[in-house]
Amino acid sequence: MKTIQKMYEHLNWANQRILETLQSMEDENQEVCRLFSHILFAEKVWITRLRGLDSSQLPIWSEVDLAVCAELVRQNEESVTTFLTNLDSTDLDKIISYTNSKGNEFKNSVREILTHVALHGHYHRGQINSRLRSDGMEPINMDFITFVR
């Protein structure tokens, strides 16, 4: 549980760093904003599923502005923190049934889902940094080791 908790503290920290960087830019980069909002929407979908609620009407990809991203960062951090606070280590192997955005049913453990969400965000944060670099900006340091230092 401590490792998962630390992974999500890092996830929240990384999301906040991206948000602050994007808010400080003169022009809003639509592709970067789209990738960032995808991370946030996916987090929302998965936490909804983990809570046993229907996620079928929630978007995975959507064109939104930074104000919406800022609200999603806040909501997701609150939701995940509450979920993890109430999660016992014995709950990690509980199986969650859910339907994905294409209507297919799946079953995964809480542990698998939490790991997926943390890794999924890392992948797309790397894409964001790649886009920022190609636009002549310094990539955002979101390394886990930087976070724990």
Rank of each mutant, 00 (worst) to 15 (best):
Y8S: 07
H10N: 00
H10D: 03
N12T: 08
W13R: 04
N15C: 08
R17H: 09
R17K: 15
I18G: 03
I18M: 10
L19F: 13
L19K: 04
L19E: 05
E20M: 10
E20N: 15
L22E: 01
L22K: 09
L22M: 14
Q23W: 03
S24H: 06
E26A: 13
D27G: 03
E28T: 14
E28A: 13
N29Q: 12
V32T: 13
C33Y: 00
L35A: 08
S37W: 00
S37K: 02
H38K: 07
H38P: 06
I39Y: 01
K44H: 14
I47S: 01
R49D: 11
L50I: 11
G52H: 11
L53F: 09
D54H: 04
Q57F: 08
Q57Y: 05
L58Q: 07
I60H: 07
W61F: 10
W61T: 12
W61P: 04
W61K: 15
E63D: 15
D65Y: 08
D65L: 12
D65P: 03
L66K: 10
L66T: 06
L66Y: 02
A67I: 02
A67S: 13
V68G: 00
C69D: 01
C69R: 02
A70M: 07
E71A: 11
E71S: 12
L72T: 07
R74N: 15
Q75D: 10
N76C: 06
S79G: 05
T82M: 07
T82V: 14
L84M: 12
N86L: 05
L87N: 06
D88R: 10
D88V: 09
S89E: 15
T90Q: 09
L92T: 08
L92I: 12
D93A: 12
I95K: 14
S97Y: 05
T99C: 09
N100R: 04
S101T: 13
K102S: 10
G103Q: 04
N104S: 13
N104L: 11
N104I: 07
F106C: 11
F106E: 11
K107N: 14
K107E: 12
N108D: 13
N108Q: 07
V110N: 06
E112D: 15
E112L: 11
E112V: 12
L114K: 08
V117E: 00
V117L: 08
A118Q: 05
L119Q: 09
L119C: 07
H120A: 07
H120W: 10
H120L: 06
G121L: 01
G126P: 07
G126R: 04
I128R: 00
I128T: 02
R131Y: 12
S134M: 08
E138F: 09
P139T: 03
P139M: 02
I140M: 00
M142T: 10
F144W: 06
T146N: 05
T146K: 00
F147A: 00
F147M: 05
V148W: 02
R149I: 01
